[in-house]
Simulated assay, not measured.
Amino acid sequence: MHTTASRLAGAAWRRSRHSGKQGNCVELAPADRAAAGHVAVRNSRFPDEPALLLTRTDLAALLSEVRAGRFDDLLEGA
């Protein structure tokens, strides 16, 4: 599911403390009442583009897989 940036006006976006200053960051924010229980995810370089909405359960599963290194193969050649 996704939503428009205008629906997320005033969202409290956060990014990892490990993010660099190049602006290539993933930002997260709790979604509004219309999408309660979801977390919005956006690319900091394109803040006015649509944001992905994940359930908290799906976000937890994604972060668990990232921490376990299951996406490390995508970094090959990066």
Score class of each variant (00 low, 15 high):
G37R: 05
P47I: 05
V41Y: 01
H38C: 15
G37D: 03
G10F: 09
L52N: 01
F71M: 06
L63C: 12
D58H: 11
P50D: 04
N24V: 04
G69Y: 09
R67W: 10
D58I: 01
R33F: 09
A31E: 03
W13K: 03
G69E: 07
A60M: 01
A40M: 06
A68R: 12
A34N: 10
F71H: 14
R67A: 14
T57D: 13
S16V: 09
W13L: 07
A9D: 14
A31G: 09
G10V: 08
A9K: 15
H38N: 12
P30F: 06
R42T: 04
D32V: 04
A35N: 14
A61G: 07
L62V: 11
A34V: 09
V39F: 00
A68Q: 12
L28R: 01
G20L: 09
A68C: 07
Q22N: 15
L28I: 13
G10T: 05
R14I: 05
R17C: 10
P30A: 13
N24H: 15
P50H: 04
S64F: 00
G10C: 08
D58N: 11
R15S: 13
V41D: 05
G69P: 07
A35T: 05
S16A: 10
A36I: 02
V39E: 03
S19Q: 07
L28N: 02
R56A: 10
V66R: 03
G23F: 06
F46C: 06
P30N: 11
A51S: 14
G20C: 09
N43Q: 08
G10R: 03
E65Y: 08
T55V: 02
W13P: 06
R33N: 11
A34T: 11
R42E: 01
P30Y: 04
N24L: 11
V66K: 02
L59V: 05
E65W: 10
G37H: 07
T57R: 14
G37A: 08
D32S: 12
A60W: 02
E49I: 00
S44N: 00
G69H: 09
L53I: 05
A68K: 10
S64E: 13
R15P: 01
E65L: 14
V66H: 00
A34S: 13
E27Y: 02
G10H: 10
P30R: 12
A35L: 01
A68V: 05
G69W: 09
G69C: 07
E27I: 05
A11R: 07
D48G: 11
R70E: 14
Q22S: 15
A60R: 12
A60F: 00
S19I: 10
R56I: 05
A9V: 15
A51I: 00
T55A: 02
L63V: 13
V26E: 06
S19R: 07
S64I: 01
A29G: 02
V41K: 01
F46N: 11
G23M: 08
H18N: 13
G37Y: 01
R17D: 10
C25L: 06
S64R: 15
R33E: 14
R70D: 11
A60D: 13
T57K: 11
R45C: 10
R67Q: 14
A35S: 13
L59K: 02
L59E: 07
G37N: 04
R42W: 01
A60H: 10
C25G: 06
R15G: 10
H38T: 08
E65I: 00
L54R: 04
E65R: 15
A29N: 08
V41T: 08
S64P: 01
